[in-house]
Amino acid sequence: MFKKALLALPVAMAVGAAAQAGEWQDPNDVLQQFLQENPDSAYLHQSEMNIMMMPDNPALWLVDEGEELFYAKRGPNNVSLEGCDFGKGPGELDGAYVELPRYFEDTGKVMDFEMRLVHCMKELQGFTSDDAAVGQRHGNGSDIMKLTTFIAHQSSGMAWNPPLDHPQEQAMRDAGEKLFYRRGGAMDFNCASCHGDVGKQIRASVLPHVGTGPEWSKAVSWPAHRAGHDNVRSQNHRIRGCVWQMRHAGIKADTPVNTALISYWNDQARGEPAILPDLKR
């Protein structure tokens, strides 16, 4: 009995892991699957135009540019980013993006994707904050968004699965949940003011609900080409835009409030496949 249980355990774990991690899928296939399985989601179905454009998502252009940047020897140290460990080992990108944020031994803290990428560009390649390579965070022309789109694309279709094994990972995720509901600023808003109910609209825009897995997976599936901005945007850019609209204080890049919020975001999408890159309104 005891022996049988011991033997069964690794099998169960392996099956569970495979089902959770999933195979790489084209981002449009993931979207189509969400649309078919959730015919009543006003959020998922709100833009016919964007659904039609998805196979020709302009964000896909950044994938190739990001791949070149990733393998190029760059920076004062003239090395590629192949030595960068996003949590699955140096240069291992398959499934890395959907398993962030996570705790990193080498820094002793939980890092979100952008924080980790910037860390590697500084530590391995020798860039400083004054270099445009890491200083410029937003827009299709930025190295950060090209690299982000390439690296995230390697996890498309895989299930969000940020680890919570380390006590710091759990602590940041739990603090992120508190931050999501923490009201403040000139309009008394929290994130749930807009994302706490299903199918609500701000003006014409249907909002994603934090408690509805497929909606939330699409909502946190950045990088995404944002049609209204005509640029590919990141999770961090979405946070910055939300706190700006909420009339909170302006948020800075590479800071732990971002990390905690993203820890909660990605945990709320757990088990749902990611659309990487996505296309949004």
């Binding site: 931050l179 204080a249 302006g250 800075k252």
Partner: peptide, 14 residues
């Protein structure tokens, strides 16, 4: 931790 992150970690342009 949430209060600490908001007020004490230089996360905002205070």
């Amino acid at each position: 931790l949430a209060e600490y992150l908001v007020l004490e970690t230089d996360s905002y342009r205070f």
